[in-house]
Amino acid sequence: MAHVPGLPAEAMASLTLGLRLPFLYPEALLPLLVLGLALTGGPRPLIAGLAGLGAGLLGADLLGEAATALALGAGALAGAVLALKGPPLPGMLRHGMGFVLPALIMAALYHGGSASAPALMALGSMGVLAVTALLIAEIADLLLTRLPGPIPGIALRIAASWLAAILILMLAFVLAGPAPGGAGA
């Protein structure tokens, strides 16, 4: 097969893969959903988020395989806090989550290959992670402000609780490792 580096088609392929990557891996997608909900109801920590994405890419190889478990664990913790406390979270907490979750999501996606990943691919992932989290937060904000009564807030907390529960289960499967004779985690 012809392989000509630098062609726009190849660059597009890298970018497209980078854009799709967060939606292909639950260890990225689920914490991303939690992150979007956690940013609801206050100013978005954009600088912390961008710093987190960069730190995650740079530190991905340092964390190695542990990045997956850490992303799942941090997502579960953030979801549990949001479920129990409800939105809006205090500013410090929102900024903390806004840094840690993007960092661990990026690390979970790129561990073992961050040094060799094409720049466009990494940029695509970083962009789609940021946009998706902000989009979820905007939609949740819209629902909370436009719909009357306590139901939207309760629904958000229940969603956070269910996401956290799923993340806890996934973390347990990851920590337990593949079962003998089974498809495993």
Binding site: P26, W162, A165, L167, L169, M170, F173, A176, G182
Partner: peptide, 23 residues
């Protein structure tokens, strides 16, 4: 539940189903 199911083939699908059933 956890003891009875140590080897779910798809952790995400299992987790989603488990939480939805409970909910």
């Amino acid at each position: 539940h956890g003891t009875e199911l140590p080897a779910a083939a798809n952790p995400l699908a299992y987790g989603v189903g488990f939480v939805l059933g409970t909910g």
